[in-house]
């Protein structure tokens, strides 16, 4: 309990720090909302030119976009700022984190929780719910469960990707924006039906890295559509489980990373 209160205090500190930059914070809040809005608008714009992309209608695509938006933004809100790890490693801020009686990852998360992304989360959920409505999903108890679990699974999966790509900084401080290829890149990948990608690219992102199970498969299950790429129908229901190995790998790599930092210094 004491530990939880400590994290709550860290979060409170962050909130009060933000309050001293009110104008900037307000602009950030809005522009962050704007970025998710624009992602969705992009989908609408592209569908102005065509009725189907990769064999899917606008409404169907929107379900994947919405599922991704809700899950990704939740992950980005909670652990997205772990991306700054490379800055902490370079500036030596990680040392001040290591002298406190708390665990490193939660400390980094709560020290700098990007509250400016809150509105964005609301919008992401709105798009997801709206997409569920316009698609006239044929509701069953299993589908209802899936509809709730899928965005959470997506969030956990993206969270794991954030931690994994951030851990890169323990070995490679100059990794720059490389992590973005998989975090933001992953989000872009899962925002569209994966049928649009070429075989090898889909093989890497969708199946080897697991992004295909984040939004595409659950969306198929919710829409009651067979996978044109040939995976069985139950795959959609099992898909959120992909976040379990993802978290396990992320946790392992993080641990090894911290150990590496301690044995090499900054």
């Amino acid at each position: 309990m004491g530990e939880l209160r400590a994290y709550a205090a860290l979060l409170g500190g962050k909130a009060r720090s933000m309050a001293s930059y009110r104008t900037s914070f307000a602009i950030e809040l809005l522009s962050n909302l704007g970025s998710t809005v624009l992602d969705v608008v992009t989908v609408f714009v592209l569908y102005r030119a065509t009725a189907r992309v990769g064999g899917f209608t606008l409404a169907e695509s929107l379900l994947m976009t919405g599922l991704t938006a809700a899950g990704f933004v939740l992950a980005d809100l909670v652990v997205g700022n772990i991306d700054d790890l490379k800055r902490y490693v370079r500036a030596g801020t990680l040392d001040t984190v290591l002298i406190r009686p708390l665990r490193v990852l939660p400390q980094l998360i709560f020290m700098d929780l990007p509250l400016r992304k809150l509105l964005r989360l609301a919008f992401g959920i709105f798009v997801y719910v709206a997409a569920l409505v316009v698609n006239h999903v044929h509701w069953t108890p299993t589908r209802l469960t899936l509809a709730v679990v899928a965005p959470i699974g997506a969030a956990v999966f993206f969270g794991a990707i954030f931690v994994l790509t951030a851990s890169l900084a323990f070995w490679w401080v100059e990794s720059g924006e490389m992590g973005a290829a998989f975090t933001y890149g992953g989000r872009d990948f899962t925002s569209y039906p994966i049928t649009i990608y070429s075989d090898w690219f889909r093989g890497v992102f969708a199946y080897a890295l697991g992004f295909g199970l984040v939004s595409y498969q659950p969306a198929l299950a919710l829409l009651d559509r067979a996978d044109p790429l040939g995976l069985p129908a139950w795959a959609g229901y099992a898909a959120p489980l992909v976040s379990v190995p993802a978290v396990a790998i992320a946790a392992l790599v993080w641990r090894i990373g911290i150990r590496h930092y301690r044995s090499t210094g900054s």
């Binding site: 065509t50 009725a51 189907r52 992309v53 490389m178 569209y192 990608y197």
Partner: peptide
């Protein structure tokens, strides 16, 4: 690292636009 990221996003955007063109 930056070039790598640009290239990954290049693939993502290119496939989307080509799919739009196909339809």
């Amino acid at each position: 690292a930056g070039s790598f990221t640009n290239i990954v996003f290049g693939f993502l955007r290119c496939y989307v636009l080509l799919a739009v063109a196909a339809g």
